[in-house]
């Protein structure tokens, strides 16, 4: 038999740090919270502001469900302390669109069935929005790679790809900002990757 000690008493509680007012600018509004520095941006949104659209999937920057936009760039809100974001422009899924007025990405996600359980979805959409803001993702290969920071356990990846591509294509010059919704045969491959007849491989 071996003796094992969990949380040795040497680590006993120190005095807790008092809360302080922290003002966050979220979706165009100033919100003042009374929190200690140990509150992450994610927990501030979910537990203090009832903005539960931002999800907690791992709390360690390993899944992307908590992705929000800070000053237009997408970040993992679970790894940022709320107190570090005073003065930043924070945008969450609730700030991108509403059920009555969906953003182009939100509409494309519905049209392409780019989600199943919906839990990773706000993070996926915020990531895609960040990529579009930055103009970095242009090709399917780039979107696949640059959307890889958002896990989807339901495995909706190919539909996420086609939803994001549709919005990117729709923003290209000549598309007049209109969403192009290609006719899609639902028993076939994802949009833009209709499986061609197989070319004989080299033998």
């Amino acid at each position: 038999m071996t003796h094992v000690t969990q949380a040795p008493l040497g680590m006993s509680p120190a005095t807790l740090v008092p809360t302080q007012p922290v003002t966050l600018h979220i979706n165009g509004q100033d919100r003042t919270l009374h929190i200690a520095p140990w509150t992450t941006l994610l927990d501030a949104l979910r537990e203090y502001l009832d903005l539960t659209g931002t999800k907690k999937g791992c709390d360690h920057g390993q899944c992307g469900a908590c992705t929000v936009l800070v000053d237009g760039k997408h970040i993992n809100s679970c790894l940022s302390l709320a107190v570090m974001q005073e003065g930043s422009e924070i945008q969450t899924i609730e700030g991108l669109g509403t059920e009555e007025s969906l953003s182009p990405l939100q509409q494309a996600f519905i049209d392409h069935d780019a989600f199943q359980c919906g839990y990773c979805t706000p993070g996926q959409i915020c990531s895609a929005q960040g990529l579009i803001n930055e103009g970095k993702a242009r090709t399917e290969a780039e979107v696949r790679e640059l959307m890889s920071g958002n896990l989807c356990r339901c495995g909706a990846y190919s539909n996420i790809l086609s939803a994001v591509m549709e919005v990117i294509e729709g923003q290209k010059p000549g598309a007049e900002g209109k969403i192009v919704m290609p006719e899609k045969e639902w028993s076939a491959g994802a949009a833009h990757q209709q499986m061609p007849p197989v070319a004989p491989p080299k033998k």
Partner: peptide, 16 residues
């Protein structure tokens, strides 16, 4: 879909 893409769909830990 609209509830899921806008974050209004509520999951177990989201009833505050």
């Amino acid at each position: 879909g609209p509830a899921k893409v806008t974050g209004t769909a509520k999951y177990a830990a989201e009833y505050n």
